[in-house]
Write a protein that binds this DNA or RNA. Structure first.
Lengths: 162, 162
DNA sequence: ATCCTTGTCTTGACTAGTTCAAAACAAGGC
DNA sequence: GCCTTGTTTTGAACTAGTCAAGACAAGGAT
């Protein structure tokens, strides 16, 4: 695994360093992690790691094309390793959980607005806003009368504001 | 015009105040203005207006549903008066110019991801990234040899970073 | 027309998230 | 194993936006 990371880094023209491997490890565990989550997570393997180092690593990853930065309105930026497949995101308004959606509405509707107003488009970004199952159910439970809470902590950017 | 604004405010259950009318005026002139542009613009009619007042006004507008807040990644939030028609945006990567696009790709593709992962979706937000005509042409001019710059300053959030 | 209530604005301090710069350091080609 | 160059550290700074308390004004009641 670690060797795979190292390989990926070299392929991207980046040196293989401990901070970078740690960050890759965290991103693999948390597919949509924010900077803070990454710092916390990466410190498990590299306790002295500074937030600035993580920002630097992430910037390098994004520039090298091995990570993508997404910025849901009103929340800190998230980073993911899944790049180049033009997928989109579902974001929970309540807890901030993020899930991936493949762009299967067809290639065209995803990429072609009706009137480009002279713009030369190179990417279409789609964000679906709503409530994740857990938050939706929790809201209903409040109304209904709290049946067993049967869901585990979902995949959030690490330190959830659940 | 001013009376129309006043009417709109009252309809939305908000008091009619000078700061609010000023902000409405600026938003009418700059359909996608950021907070700073709004402060600057509104001060033409109300020089003592504070940034915090503008934030307050905008918050009230958004809460009352007469304005919408959009937050393109990496840029300060923008505000627009066009609400309730589920339109989307074209954003220029170079100068930050924003243009509206009607959601004419059809109602369905805009609102239904292939797999909701258990989420209950209430809104689909689409942002098309690219270059506006001016920036695109300017880039080509650099390569070609600078023909006449025939385009006026486009509609940007007021104080463009052209 | 004036008073009073309540929502709005002003003032000032403050936070989160992120970026910048300079110096210490380490990866990896020679 | 050495040297070059890219990375990380350290520390400060910046921007966009928020919070709270008191001054103030809109507009319904008198």
């Amino acid at each position: 695994m670690e060797t795979t990371w190292a390989h990926q880094l070299r392929e991207a023209g980046l040196r293989v360093t401990r901070p970078r491997l740690s960050v890759l490890g965290v991103l693999a565990q948390h597919p949509h992690a924010d900077a803070d989550t990454i710092v916390t997570g990466a410190r498990e393997q590299h306790p002295s790691l500074s937030p600035q180092a993580v920002y630097g690593v992430l910037k390098a990853f994004v520039a090298a094309g091995i990570a993508r930065r997404i910025e849901p309105a009103g929340a800190p930026a998230l980073f993911e390793l899944r790049v180049g497949d033009n997928h989109h995101h579902l974001v929970c308004r309540s807890c901030g959980a993020v899930a991936d959606v493949d762009c299967t509405v067809g290639a065209a509707p995803c990429l072609t607005p009706s009137d480009t107003a002279g713009f030369v488009i190179d990417e279409a970004e789609v964000v679906f806003w709503g409530l994740c199952r857990q938050c939706h159910d929790r809201d209903r439970q409040v109304a209904v009368g709290a049946e067993a809470v049967q869901f585990e902590q979902h995949e959030i950017r690490g330190g959830a504001r659940a």
